[in-house]
């Protein structure tokens, strides 16, 4: 008896697990109470505020089952312009914050992410991830924030150098942030790809604007809320949602953007990016094809990609 009961109980538990459906934003919670669900309006994040796009345009985001998840802002070049302005205004103060302080703030981001794990996991499930894969991705994203938080006050002393020169000079090279970085987040990873491409840029004192994955923008907007609640000053990160191809030429040509991190792999986009970026000799950093869940997607060299080397010649007495 006991033996035959055991497997039944096990299998019924497994069935329950398999049947448990994710509460999509419009689903009936099934607890007997009839109420209208209060769904979140997914807006954009510019200068520490959550406005709608200036254009008033939006696109419909569908779940993997075909239901509408949200009407997402379809940002235009004017939102991009506003985001660059906000990022530029925030940059000097963010770069002037101590490295230790920036690390603390990024660690705080990880703490806030930890608390919001279920929300991110839900959003990943709506677009077709399994529960387990969703939780894995959120946890990896949290760990990645902690990883870069640790590097905040270390990369400088690891990579800066004192250089031998053949004159009476003390010659040294240090890293400085390049300024405002535009990031085209990868389409294949809603949260982890975003975190992995964004955090190394801001840890070194840059400010950023992110064009979130057009097909997976929900996590990006929710991540903006996390940043907003984590002592990250307004304007340090700005999040826009739109098909990346529509904004990329304006981003790549913008004279006040110092670097673009492009995580897609469309050959025509890359060609346009590199051509437009020549206008002010901005860096075009290509990170398409990365395996975001692999350890190779993180490292101090990702920080250096958006840093400039400053070499100083300091006269010394003989």
């Amino acid at each position: 008896m006991a033996k035959s009961r055991q497997p039944r109980a096990k299998s019924s538990r497994m069935r329950t697990t398999r049947r448990r459906s994710v509460a999509s934003p419009s689903a009936d919670r099934g607890n007997g109470r009839r109420r209208l669900p209060v769904n979140k309006t997914y807006k954009i994040y510019i200068g520490g505020k959550f406005p709608r796009t200036e254009s008033g345009h939006y696109y419909e985001l569908k779940s993997s089952e075909g239901t509408t998840l949200a009407n997402v802002c379809r940002c235009t070049k004017k939102d991009l312009r506003d985001a660059v302005q906000a990022a530029r205004a925030a940059q000097p103060a963010w770069a002037a914050a101590t490295a230790f302080n920036r690390g603390q703030i990024l660690y705080r981001v990880a703490e806030m992410l930890e608390g919001r794990k279920p929300q991110f996991a839900d959003e990943l499930q709506w677009i077709g991830h399994t529960r387990q894969a969703s939780i894995n991705e959120v946890e990896l994203a949290i760990d990645r924030c902690v990883y870069y938080a640790g590097w905040a006050d270390k990369y400088q002393q690891v990579f800066s150098s004192v250089n031998p020169v053949a004159s009476a000079h003390f010659n040294f090279s240090i890293y400085e942030p390049t300024g405002v970085v535009g990031i085209v987040a990868p389409e294949d990873s809603a949260l982890l790809g975003l975190v992995s491409s964004l955090v190394p840029a801001i840890v070194g004192g840059n400010t950023a604007l992110v064009i979130a994955a057009a097909e997976r923008p929900l996590c990006a907007v929710t991540f903006a809320e996390v940043l907003h609640a984590s002592d990250v000053p307004g304007g340090v990160v700005n999040v826009l949602t739109a098909p990346a191809g529509e904004l990329l030429p304006h981003l790549a040509g913008h004279m006040d953007v110092n670097a673009v991190v492009y995580c897609g792999d469309a050959a025509s986009d890359i060609r346009d990016l590199q051509a437009c970026a020549a206008g002010n000799v901005k860096r075009a950093i290509l990170r398409g094809g990365s395996d975001w869940s692999s350890e190779t997607a993180q490292g101090p060299y990702e920080i250096l990609e958006t840093q400039e080397v400053k070499t100083t010649w300091h006269p010394i007495g003989t």
Partner: peptide, 9 residues
Amino acid sequence: DGVYQSIDY
């Protein structure tokens, strides 16, 4: 020029 400008210039 068709591109947004920077005060640096």
